[in-house]
Deep mutational scan, measured.
Amino acid sequence: EFSMMFKHFDKDKSGRLNHQEFKSCLRSLGYDLPMVEEGEPDPEFEAILDTVDPNRDGHVSLQEYMAFMISRE
Rank of each mutant, 00 (worst) to 15 (best):
L33P: 06
A47T: 12
L29R: 03
S28R: 13
S71R: 08
L49N: 02
G39I: 04
H59E: 13
Y31I: 15
F2R: 03
R56A: 05
E37I: 08
R16D: 02
D50T: 04
L29I: 10
K13V: 05
F45N: 01
Y31G: 03
H19K: 03
H8R: 14
D50F: 00
R56F: 00
L33C: 08
A47Q: 15
D57I: 15
H59C: 12
Y31H: 13
R27F: 08
H19F: 02
P43S: 10
E44C: 10
M66H: 07
L33W: 08
F68C: 03
M4P: 02
M35D: 15
T51I: 13
R27Y: 08
T51Q: 15
H19N: 02
P43Q: 10
E38K: 12
Y65N: 03
E37Y: 07
E21S: 07
H19P: 03
R27T: 11
D42P: 01
E64A: 15
A47R: 14
G30W: 02
D10C: 04
L49P: 00
P41V: 12
D10Y: 12
S61H: 09
L17C: 03
G30M: 04
D50R: 06
S61C: 10
S71F: 06
D53C: 02
D50H: 05
D53F: 01
D57Q: 15
L62A: 07
P41T: 12
M35G: 12
F68G: 02
S71Y: 02
H59N: 08
N55I: 05
F22Y: 05
V60I: 13
E44H: 12
D50P: 00
R27N: 15
P43Y: 05
Q63F: 05
V60Y: 01
F68Y: 14
M69P: 02
P43G: 08
E1M: 09
G58W: 00
G58K: 02
H59L: 08
A67W: 06
M66K: 07
E40G: 11
Y65M: 07
Y31T: 08
L49W: 01
E64F: 01
L33E: 03
L62M: 14
S71P: 12
G58R: 01
Y31A: 07
K23V: 03
D53P: 00
H59G: 08
N18E: 03
S28K: 15
P54I: 06
A67E: 13
G15C: 02
D57W: 08
S28A: 15
P43A: 10
